[in-house]
Design a protein around this nucleic acid. Sequence first.
RNA 1: CGAGGCGUGGCUCAGCCCGGUAGAGCACCUGCUUUGGGAGCAGGGGGUCGCAGGUUCAAAUCCUGCCGCCUCGACCA
Length: 479
Amino acid sequence: MAKSIGVTKQSEDFSRWYTDVVQKAELADYGPVKGTMVIRPYGYGIWELMQQGLDGLFKATGHVNAYFPLFIPESFLKKEAEHVEGFAPEVAVVTHAGGKKLDEPLVVRPTSETIIWHMYKKWIGSYRDLPLLINQWANVVRWEMRTRLFLRTTEFLWQEGHTAHATAKEAEEETQRMLAVYKKFAEEWMAMPVLTGRKSESEKFAGAVATYSIEAMMRDTKALQAGTSHFLGQNFAKAFEVTFQNQQNEAEFVYATSWGVSTRLIGGVIMTHGDDKGLILPPRVAPIQVVIIPIFRDAEQKSLVMAEVDQLNQGLKALGIRVKVDDDETSSPGFKFNEWEMRGVPVRIELGPKDVEKQQCVLVTRYNGEKSFLPLAGLVESMPQRLDVVQKALFQRALTFQQENTHRANNWEEFQEILESKGGFIRAGWNGDPEVEAKIKEATKATIRNIPFDQPENPGTCVFTGEPAQYEVIFAKAY
RNA sequence: CGAGGCGUGGCUCAGCCCGGUAGAGCACCUGCUUUGGGAGCAGGGGGUCGCAGGUUCAAAUCCUGCCGCCUCGACCA
């Protein structure tokens, strides 16, 4: 024993731990083209559950799904000045197709605002066509220089909502509504506590009037932008000449929003809950919520044990619980324990001859390693409740961690000291000057994650200049 | 693109300095014994040594060029 199997310890090398977990838990693998990723069935299972959850929340807020093309005429991208400036460096361009050079190059969408607003021009004529609330599930391509599985890949899966409204107020409300949806999803499905707020000018979406984000803290105390919602004002409506006639019969430019979360969230859930043994999945997004490991020596024991196991399996399935029986006879129980722990299954049930005799089983919860002997009677019925407890406990644990690693810095010395010794989120005053923001970034690599909605009455002084602060903001090193 | 490192069975790597039969561990296959925290023994299969050229009787090993990957920096959901 004691061979170095499993994953690199989180405490030893967080970044290697992450890469190990992603690959050994069979969530994803590297594709042959630099920066591309193959999402394997287990990882894709998480994404499917996320999609179901999010899609339900989108539908509940009045949105419908549609699909727009992957290819966008290059000229579209150039119509909105900030947008093209922001995305031009990272777009992939198709210059040849059908065996010849194209008249106009096509860009592979890095996001779909341009092609969607091109279409909205055709569909929107009067105030009666508004609001238009469309979401699409799609892949997008951004040629990033440095990539990491799930967190930043050349091609990734996401959803992008694109809405059109008659008034700025309505669009702003939509922006906030969807940010709240993201917060709810992150916290209740992914068990990831997040901070909501507005992005600084330098960090906002290219082409937006304002960008809002949810920011989460990973177990290495670095920040992860987990979702964004943009108020686009009339920028895209003007670029694509999308007007509507209001009730006074006047032409007006339409107001827009867009919002998205991506497969990056999977990276977030891994880094929010995982430990030295590997992945820990919140039950709501776990492809396998309960794994049952039967233990037996011979055929007689096998039939005895499997009879109980089958009953458990059927019972749990009937309640809609995602359960797997690992009856593979070519690997040992001990191996399976470790394997399923590494893969983050929330609850494990062990059932052997001794248990059948006593009409009990061994139940182990992944996140805290707690092992208990429970009577088989009533076990099935108790499972939804048990999973719910795990789901909430994971959120609580992550929330406590986030709070314990959030500090207030009142001056530059404190700021640097906290960043060096503790890391994490730093709440600090900022005078609102982008140059100051840039200087802090250059000096420390910490960036303003967002300007939280919950502002103190007095934001104090700017942590860098000592001038009166305009806001209290969250600084952190980020992914 | 700047700086470092690395390309050898599926994976992790040794061999390279000092040229001469291509290796180990893990994984895989077969058999027997095992199975309550990563099982043991025995046998077995599998490699154009990143690519191209050069030096040499002889190249994984030396030389040149190219390609790819990783880490760090500049860009970002």
